[in-house]
Design a protein around this nucleic acid. Structure first.
Lengths: 238, 238
DNA sequence: TATAAAAACTGATTTTTATCATATTTTAAT
DNA sequence: ATTAAAATATGATAAAAATCAGTTTTTATA
């Protein structure tokens, strides 16, 4: 359980950069970011930051997967969102000048860059377009969360599970040919903490969906066989 | 059901301005806003904007109260937030360059200003501090919604109702002496649509809280008699 | 002010979902 | 390879909350 090790990857050659918000950065800013960033390897289970602590900088996922969650009073996690390569973590707290509202831990071994707060804000100030993109992304996230909030209040567990499987397929479906395989290793418990239900309930519903031919298990991964039927289960276009 | 009427209030003398995000605006920008804004009186039940439509500008509440909600597939509203004088509406969609994710309708007769998109963005561009404040506010809102999302997933209806009553007391408690009276006329149905439950359930729980001496009904309003006990019901500091 | 409509309320019942108990399978560690 | 621990699975039961049905009260309107 050690795992943290410096890497010598630079922002110019970072594969995840292109599909990230940093796509718009000019060479100069990228150089600045590159100069001040540090890159660390994390093992599954390691924590990037804890709810209630002060943000010191921005995390940028280069490889691997991370869950962002709040701990409920009964010790049950509520997963707010998942993050994958190309995504930032911690900018909401930075720009809002608040403590972290949630914790972030690695669910698949990851390589993650860290840009100190000062340097990040500096780059933001120098690049109005980059700033605008970040703001736009936060606004979008707020809209998405409003949707999910509404669903959580109004849909049944079964509907929410179906809806979340479809969302996961969108986010983690593999490129091209294998777009039906959800390429993220979530435990049943994590899935329950996304959907907002008990682990046993997720297990039961998953096996129903499987029995009905909507999904299939492939190791730790789930394959969506019938997205149409799942959408119906999710009460989409109702 | 007519009710829309132009008013000749100006931004300089607007009472709700001081406690709003516009507090930081300079005279020049305020003049710009004043010049381009229009002020309209709305009656209870009238709608400011509809989910799925394109935002044309910013709403600024001068007087009255507004609910922002999404319509679920069973025709049940989920109230995302309430807005009171001094607050803006519609900036998330404007800055995110998206359609409205929710609808907004008046729940207490209101006077609301409207600033066209172009003028609002212009003022934002000219005033980095104002822009920064707005962004900060959006970030804060996202954090608050994450909290509520987590509570919705993990707390019982009883706990959520208690928590929401306390929140409403914070937001709508009157100044000074009468801080225990929640000064907003919410129907039982609206309250249910905030908490995320059935109207009957809210009615039952409210009358329990009343029987136990935690709250009191005063006309259409609720008075919080024992905030400590309510906080315990809400599972705060658990 | 009479009357209709809407909102608030109450009780009975059903449905959904969580919880508890326990078994089986998988994964990790010695 | 063996054993312990964790994750997954299944059944039985209990609890929470929704739904349905009906009544009373309040509010709005002719």
């Amino acid at each position: 359980m050690t795992g943290k090790k410096k890497m010598s990857i630079d922002c110019f050659h970072c594969m995840s950069r292109k599909q990230s918000l940093m796509g718009t950065l000019k060479d100069e800013e990228l150089a600045c970011m590159n100069e001040h960033k540090s890159s660390v390897n994390y093992k599954k289970g390691q924590t990037l930051f804890y709810e209630g602590t002060r943000p010191m900088g921005l995390f940028c996922i280069n490889g691997g997967k991370v869950k962002v969650f709040k701990m409920g009073s009964q010790g049950k996690e509520q997963i707010i969102r998942l993050a994958k390569p190309g995504e930032f973590l911690g900018y909401r707290a930075l720009l809002g000048e608040e403590f972290y509202a949630a914790s972030a831990t690695v669910i698949e071994d990851a390589n993650i860059c860290f840009i100190p707060k000062f340097d990040f804000l500096e780059i933001l100030n120098r690049n109005p377009n980059f700033y605008k993109n970040i703001v736009q992304s936060i606004c979008h996230e707020l809209g998405v969360l409003e949707d999910r909030f509404s669903d959580l209040a109004q849909k049944s567990v079964r509907e929410r599970l179906a809806a979340n499987l479809l969302m996961l397929k969108e986010s983690y479906g593999m490129e091209g040919d294998d777009s039906t395989l959800i390429d993220i290793a979530l435990s049943r418990e994590d899935l329950a903490n996304i959907v907002g239900t008990a682990t046993e309930t997720v297990i039961r519903l998953l096996s129903e969906f499987k029995k009905d031919g909507l999904i299939l298990f492939e190791g730790k991964r789930i394959r969506v066989l019938d997205a149409k039927a799942l959408a119906k289960e999710a009460d989409f276009y109702a």
